[in-house]
Design a protein around this nucleic acid. Structure first.
Length: 912
RNA sequence: GCACGCUUAGCUCAGCUGGUUAGAGCAUCUCGUUUACACCGAGAGGGUCGGGGGUUCGAAUCCCUCAGCGUGCACCA
C-alpha cells in the first residue's frame, strides 16, 4: 500500500480522478450490468455559467446516482443543456447592446443575430460542461444532449404535428402577455408579479354617463366598449342593457354598453368595471361571452406592440406612449371635471421575467395548447392526464403513478393544474424551434415535421413558414424521452402514434428518478408529465425529488443584481469539490430552502481532512498485515464487537436513508460514525489492545467500507484513498458493504458492545469527573457491585485497565474492590456508572464545597426525574395501554435513577 | 383572496410511522501537544420545541385556533 501524504490537496488530484473515471467507461451504462436506473439531468440554460444552485443540484443528483450504481444498478445519467429560447436571446441582445448595437434585430437581421446567439450558446455549453465535470458529476458524456440539436428538434416537430393533428394545438386570437422590450409574448408562468405604487383613478367617461369607474390604467379606457356591473347591484340595475355614447375627448365618441357580470365585485371601487376587451384577459372573456348573448360588444385595440397608442385611440392620442397618454387623459378628465378621486395604492404588475419590463395585455393571434379538450381516442384532457399521473396513476394503474418527494408538492401541483389555462406556446423571438407550420396561397395551414414541397390542398409550391418560435419549455417537456434518442430517426409518427425506436428508450424509459428545484415545478415537471403522457402514453418518471433553493447567509436569493453571487469554481479552488458537495448536502431537507455560508464549507473541509488522516493512520498501521485473510471471530475484543455492531447498523441505516432520499440524514450518520465512533473511540482503542492482526484487519475492512459509503457524497477523496489501497476496480463501481457481512462476524447474540459500553462510559465518567469536578484521579479505586450485572464486570474492568488508564483519563493506578467492606481508607466514592462505583483518595479532592454544591444540584435533578417516572408508572392507564417494552424501559429507567440517587446521597455524606 | 409551508440551543438546521431526561454542526467557556489529524483531542454551559386549546396512558411529532415569517397562484378593474 502506498502511504498517504501529510496533507490532502484536492486541487492536485480531482481533475486526474475525473479523467480516470471517464476513461474507465463506467459512466456509460453499456459497460454496467444490473437493473436499469436512469436519471436525466435538468439541462442548465446556455445563458452563461453555473452558479451555486447548480452545484447543489449536481451534488444531490450525483450522490443518488453514484449510490445506485454502487448498489449494482445499470445507471444512466444523461447530461445536457437547454437552448433557453427567450432567456438566451435576451441575454445576447443585452450583450450586443452593450457593444453598441442598439437594436440587434433590426441591425443584424434574423440570420446574423441567430449566428451571434449560436456562437454564444456554444461557448456557454463548453463552460457548463466543464463545470459539471468539475463538480464530479458521473454522467455519460457520450449521450450529451441539447434541447436544440437535430435529434431533440426532430422530437419537437413530431410531437407538435401530433398535437396539431389531434386539434390540441390551435391558432387563436386572444389577449396575451406582451413584452414590449422583448417584442414577444410570454406565458402566464413567465411573469413575475412585482409590487409597485400606483394611482387608482375614479372618474366618469363623460357628464352624460351615470356610472363612475375606477382604474389604474386610464389610457386603456379609450378602448372601453362596456361597463360591467353585478346583476344584483341595486345602484346600477336600471342601466343594464343600455348603451351610452360618450365623448372622451379623443376623436370619435365611445359607445359603452352596460352589461351584467357576476364576476364583478360590487364592493370594489365604485362596483362598476370599465370593460376593455383588447387590454385585459378578463375583459376579453366578457367580450367572448357577450358574443353568445346576441348583444356583442366591440373590441378596440388602443395600444400597439411598441407600447404606443394606436390610431384607434383617436388622433389626439395616436403615437403617444402609454405614460404620455395617461397624463394627457387624466389632465383632460380633470379639466372636464370628470375626475372624482385619486388614491395611492400598491399594485402587483406582471413583469416579464426575462426582459424585466411590465407586460402589456394585447389581443393577438398566437399558438396555444388546449388543455381542456378531450384527446382524440383517449376521452381525457391533458389536464386530466396531468392529474391522474400523480393521483390514481396513469390509466388508473398505481404502477404508473409519479411519487413526489416531499409530498406537499403534490398538493401544490394539483392546485396549480386546477387553475391551468391554455398554454401560449408561440414566441416572437428568433432563437428557438420555429413553429413547424407552413402557409400556402390557399390560406391553409400545413403542419409537418419538415418543410413540405407543395401544398396538399392547392398544390402551390409557394409556401412560407410561420415566423414564430416555440416556448423553450415545449422542448424541455420532451426531455425524459428525447434524451434517450441517439439520432433524429429514432422517433417516428404514423397512424397517430409516436414510436421511439432506440434501445435506450426501451431500456431506460420512464426515468427512475428526477430531481429539480421547486421553482421549476410548473415550468418543467408539469410539462414533462403533459408531453410524455400525451405523446407516449407513459409517465415520464417514477420518482421526483424536489429540492429547495440555495440562499445566502441572510436568506436572500443569489443573483447578479444583488451582488451576492458566489462562484462555485472559486469555492472549489479554495476547499475542493468534495468540501463544497458535502457542505451543500449537509443539513438539507427535501423541498426546503437552505443557506450557503463559507463556515459550512470549512466544516466540510475539516471532515475531509479528518477522513484523510484516519486513512493515513490505518494505511500506515496495517501495512505489514495481510488484510486479505478472514477475520477470526475468536480474537474479537469487546471493542471490536462494538464497532462491528455499529457498522452493521450503519450499513442498514444508510441503505434506508438513501432509498428514501434522506441524503442529509445519511451524511449525518456517516459523519457521526466516522468521526466520533470510529476515530475517537475505536482507533484510539486499537493503539492499546494487543490483538494486532485482528485489529488491523478490522481497521482495514471498516476503512474500505466507509470509503464506499461516503463515496456518493465525496467521490474524489474516497476514490483517491481507494487507489492507495491498490484496488483493481475503481470505487465508483465497487459494491456497498452489506449488513450480513458484519452480522456474520459478531453473531446474533452479541454482548460485546454492551460490555464495551461499560468501559466506555467508565472512561467518560472519569474524564468528566476529573475535568469538571476538580478532582485528581491519579489513583483510582473501583468498587464492583457484582449483584448489578450478569456479565462479570470485575473481569471486564481488570481486562481493560490499560485502556482506562491510557485513554485520556489521567489515571495512573487502579485498585479493584469487590465489596463495600473493603473500601480503602481515606477514599471517597466520587461517582458511579453501571453499578460500578469509583473511589478516589480524599486528598485528590480539590474543592470540597464546590463539589458538594454540584452534587446537590444533581441530586434535585435526579429526584425530580424519579418523581416523573414514578408518576408515570403509577398511572394504571399507562401500564395497561402502553406497549410492554415501553413500560419495561420506564421501569429500568426508574431503577437506575433510584440507584443513582442513593449513590449521590452517599457521596454527599462522605463529603461532609 | 385561494393554496402550501415554516417557527426547535446565540447562529444554521435535523428530528421518518406519537414512547430519549429533545439532537448535530458552528459559536462560547475550561483543559490539553498523548503513536494519523490544532483543519486536532478531552470536558462543560446553553432549549418550558412561536402562544393558547384539544385528542391520547403519553405530543416537538396528530387536530383546532391565534400570532409572526415565507412561497406559489389569482386579483386589484
Amino acid at each position: 500500500m502506498k502511504e498517504l501524504s501529510k496533507n490532502y490537496l484536492p486541487q492536485e488530484v480531482e481533475d486526474a480522478i475525473y479523467i480516470s473515471w471517464k476513461k474507465s467507461g463506467f459512466f456509460d451504462p453499456n459497460n454496467l450490468s444490473g437493473e436499469p436506473y436512469s436519471v436525466m439531468m435538468p439541462p442548465p440554460n446556455v445563458t452563461g455559467v453555473l452558479h451555486l444552485g447548480h452545484a447543489l443540484e449536481n451534488t444531490i443528483m450525483d450522490a443518488n446516482v453514484r449510490y445506485k450504481r454502487m448498489c449494482g444498478k445499470k445507471v444512466l445519467l444523461v447530461p445536457g443543456t437547454d437552448h433557453a429560447a427567450v432567456a438566451t436571446q435576451a441575454k445576447v441582445e443585452r450583450i450586443l447592446m452593450e457593444r453598441g448595437i442598439m437594436d440587434p434585430r433590426k441591425e443584424l437581421g434574423r440570420e446574423k443575430l441567430l449566428e451571434e446567439i449560436r456562437t454564444f450558446a456554444e461557448q456557454s455549453k463548453k463552460t457548463i460542461i466543464s463545470q459539471v465535470e468539475k463538480m464530479g458529476t458521473s454522467c455519460d458524456w457520450s449521450r450529451l444532449a441539447y434541447t436544440f440539436d437535430d435529434t431533440r428538434s426532430s422530437a419537437v416537430n413530431i410531437v407538435f404535428k401530433k398535437m396539431f393533428d389531434d386539434g390540441l394545438i390551435y391558432r387563436g386570437y386572444r389577449v396575451v402577455n406582451w413584452s414590449v422590450k422583448g417584442q414577444s409574448t410570454c406565458s402566464d408562468d413567465e411573469l413575475e408579479h412585482v409590487e409597485r405604487p400606483a394611482k387608482l383613478y375614479t372618474f366618469t367617461y363623460s357628464h352624460n354617463f351615470p356610472i363612475a369607474i375606477a382604474t389604474t390604467r386610464p389610457e386603456t379606457k379609450l378602448g372601453d366598449t362596456a361597463v360591467a356591473v353585478h346583476p344584483d347591484d341595486k345602484r346600477y340595475q336600471q342601466y343594464i342593457g343600455k348603451t351610452f355614447t360618450v365623448d372622451v375627448g379623443a376623436e370619435k365618441p365611445l359607445s359603452i354598453k352596460v352589461i351584467a357580470s357576476i364576476d364583478v365585485d360590487p364592493t370594489f371601487g365604485t362596483g362598476a368595471l370599465g370593460v376593455t376587451p383588447a387590454h385585459s384577459a378578463i375583459d376579453f372573456d366578457m367580450y367572448e361571452k357577450q358574443k353568445n348573448t346576441g348583444e356583442p360588444i366591440d373590441l378596440i385595440q388602443v395600444i400597439d406592440t411598441n407600447g404606443k397608442m394606436t390610431s384607434a385611440a383617436g388622433k389626439n392620442y395616436a403615437g403617444l406612449t402609454v405614460e404620455e397618454a395617461r397624463t394627457k387623459f387624466v389632465a383632460w378628465l380633470k379639466e372636464q371635471n370628470l375626475m372624482q378621486n385619486e388614491e395611492d395604492v400598491m399594485q402587483n404588475v406582471g413583469t416579464s421575467d426575462r426582459f424585466k419590463d411590465i407586460v402589456e395585455a394585447l389581443p393577438m393571434t398566437q399558438w396555444f395548447v388546449d388543455v381542456h379538450k378531450k384527446i382524440p381516442g383517449k376521452n381525457k384532457t391533458l389536464k386530466e392526464l396531468m392529474i391522474d399521473s400523480v393521483t390514481t396513476g396513469l390509466h388508473g394503474n398505481t404502477n404508473e403513478k409519479i411519487t413526489i418527494t416531499p409530498d406537499k408538492f403534490s398538493k401544490i401541483y394539483i392546485n396549480w393544474i386546477n387553475n391551468l389555462r391554455d398554454w401560449c406556446i408561440s414566441r416572437q423571438v428568433w432563437w428557438g424551434h420555429r413553429i413547424p407550420v407552413w402557409y400556402c396561397e390557399c390560406k391553409k395551414m400545413i403542419a409537418d415535421t419538415s418543410a413540405p414541397t407543395k401544398c396538399p390542398y392547392c398544390a402551390s409550391t409557394n409556401l412560407t413558414q410561420d415566423d414564430d418560435t416555440l416556448d423553450t419549455w415545449f422542448s424541455s417537456g420532451l426531455w425524459t424521452f428525447s434524451t434517450l434518442m441517439r439520432s433524429p430517426q429514432d422517433i417516428t409518427y404514423s397512424d397517430s402514434t409516436i414510436t421511439i425506436h432506440s434501445t435506450d428508450f426501451k431500456t431506460f424509459h420512464p426515468s427512475s428518478w428526477m430531481q429539480m428545484g421547486h421553482e421549476i415545478l410548473f415550468f418543467w415537471m408539469a410539462r414533462m408529465i403533459l408531453m410524455t403522457t400525451y405523446a407516449l402514453d407513459q409517465i415520464p418518471f417514477k420518482d421526483v425529488y424536489i429540492h429547495g433553493i440555495l440562499r445566502d447567509e441572510k436568506g436572500n436569493k443569489f443573483s447578479k443584481s444583488a451582488g451576492n453571487n458566489v462562484d462555485p469554481l472559486e469555492v472549489i479552488e479554495k476547499y475542493g469539490t468534495d468540501a463544497l458537495r458535502l457542505s451543500l448536502i449537509s443539513g438539507i431537507a427535501p423541498g426546503n430552502d437552505s443557506k450557503y455560508y463559507e463556515e459550512k464549507v470549512i466544516g466540510a473541509r475539516n471532515f475531509i481532512s479528518k477522513l484523510w488522516n484516519i486513512s493515513r493512520f490505518i494505511i500506515q498501521k496495517t501495512q505489514d498485515t495481510d488484510t486479505s485473510k478472514n477475520i477470526s471471530t475468536e480474537n474479537l475484543t469487546v471493542f471490536d464487537r462494538m464497532i462491528l455492531e455499529k457498522m452493521r447498523d450503519l450499513t442498514q441505516d444508510i441503505t434506508c436513508d438513501m432509498d428514501a432520499y434522506r441524503f442529509a440524514q445519511a451524511v449525518e450518520k456517516l459523519h457521526f460514525f466516522t468521526w466520533l465512533e470510529f476515530a475517537d473511540w475505536y482507533i484510539e482503542v486499537t493503539k492499546f489492545e494487543n490483538n494486532t492482526d485482528t485489529k488491523n484487519m478490522i481497521l482495514h475492512m471498516i476503512l474500505e467500507d466507509i470509503l464506499a459509503l461516503w463515496h456518493p457524497f465525496i467521490p474524489f477523496i474516497t476514490e483517491e484513498i481507494w487507489q492507495h489501497l491498490q484496488k483493481e476496480r475503481p470505487l465508483l463501481i465497487s459494491p456497498l458493504p452489506t449488513k450480513n457481512k458484519y452480522e456474520s462476524l459478531i453473531g446474533e447474540n452479541n454482548t460485546g458492545s454492551q460490555q464495551a459500553n461499560v468501559i466506555k462510559e467508565l472512561i467518560t465518567t472519569v474524564r468528566a469527573m476529573t475535568k469538571e469536578q476538580n478532582i485528581t484521579a491519579k489513583d483510582l479505586h473501583i468498587l464492583i457491585d457484582d449483584t448489578q450485572r450478569t456479565f462479570g464486570p470485575k473481569e471486564l474492568v481488570s481486562a481493560h485497565e490499560e485502556i482506562i488508564k491510557k485513554l485520556r483519563t489521567g489515571v495512573s493506578t487502579i485498585t479493584l474492590i469487590t465489596s463495600r467492606n473493603h473500601t480503602p481508607d481515606n477514599t471517597i466514592s466520587a461517582t458511579t456508572c453501571h453499578g460500578i462505583t469509583i473511589f478516589i483518595p480524599l486528598d485528590g479532592l480539590i474543592d470540597t464545597a464546590a463539589e458538594k454544591k454540584k452534587k446537590e444540584v444533581e441530586l434535585t435533578e435526579v429526584c425530580a426525574y424519579i418523581a416523573t417516572l414514578e408518576k408515570k408508572l403509577s398511572n394504571e392507564q399507562f401500564v395497561q395501554n402502553a406497549p410492554e417494552h415501553v413500560v419495561a424501559t420506564e421501569r429500568e429507567k426508574l431503577q437506575n435513577a433510584q440507584h443513582r440517587e442513593q449513590e449521590i446521597r452517599t457521596y454527599i455524606t462522605h463529603l461532609e
